[in-house]
Amino acid sequence: MSSITGVSVGDGLSDPSDGPDPGAGASTGTTGDRVFGGLAMGAGLLVVVVVALVGIFLLAQAIPAIGKDQINFLTSREWNAAGQRFGIAQLLWTTVVSSVVALLLAVPFSVGIALFLTHYAPAWLSRIGAVLIDLLAAVPSIVYGIWGIYVVAPKFTHVQNFLQDWLGWIPLFKAVPGVTGGATILMVSVVLAVMILPIITALSREVFAQTPVTHKEGALALGATRWEMIRTAVLPFGRPGVISASMLGLGRALGETVAVLFILTALPGGQRFTASLMNGGATFASQIAGDAPENQNNADAMGALIAAGLVLFILTFIVNAIARVIVERRREFSE
């Protein structure tokens, strides 16, 4: 149950049971031990090598392309890969904002569902619920994309109109002229939230279910209600797990390609920047997916796309690093 953050969701567990070791007396000699150890180390090293090679590939391809870039790669908002005028500012904004909003929408729901399944629902319902959540995680993203654009978007337009009319004074909900039909960053965030919900729920459910019974019974024995027991025993115990699950979800949201490509309205060049969630745009992944097929035989344009991929790679690294820091610090508190 280890996550991409490298921290197992069960890391907070106390020592395994004190019973007799079931493996005792089943020794096969040292050969098996050495072979297995070697295989495990090989697998571990392979991951490191693969990540390093991906990084080297991205750097090697991106640096010459950035050198040919006619505008500032980091601060410019224009994106024209084939024309050698590309900057990542707008892509970075859209990618981060859509994913963060998706996370804000998904985490409370996920934690709620996980708590319901582990502490409120009767056993039979809990089992069915767990299976359904896992099933939701297995839906391909293209299905979410098509569902989002043909089913959710027309209905979600009304929600967005409401937000624009009543909360338009908040910059986040300001109406953007020229973007119609509900295909906005907010809409993408909602679909992304649905997509990452099952991951976060499934992992949170696992950790909540592992809360030591002694903690829970202790809280109840002290006269806590069920909600107080959850607040004092289950949530603190599960917090690192929930955080690492959220980061896993954020990772998926940041890299989501097809659903975003299908839903989000792309902007023409030269638009003024607006912080509104009612705007269109493109994320790193959707921009790459849209540009790559037709630019296969254009090395310069591919270089620009790979440079965008490099930034996404680094962004994901940063997100995971932050998650690790948070999880480590939390563990110090809870132990």
């Binding site: 020229g178 309205t265 902007l267 030269g270």
Partner: peptide, 26 residues
């Protein structure tokens, strides 16, 4: 002329199916 849209107005949709259905809905 270019393979990427160089215009300053409009809304971008992916593939022929995307622009087709967007016009149909608008």
């Amino acid at each position: 002329h270019a393979k990427a849209w160089a215009g300053k107005v409009g809304q971008g949709k992916p593939k022929s199916a995307g622009v087709g259905s967007a016009v149909k809905a608008t």
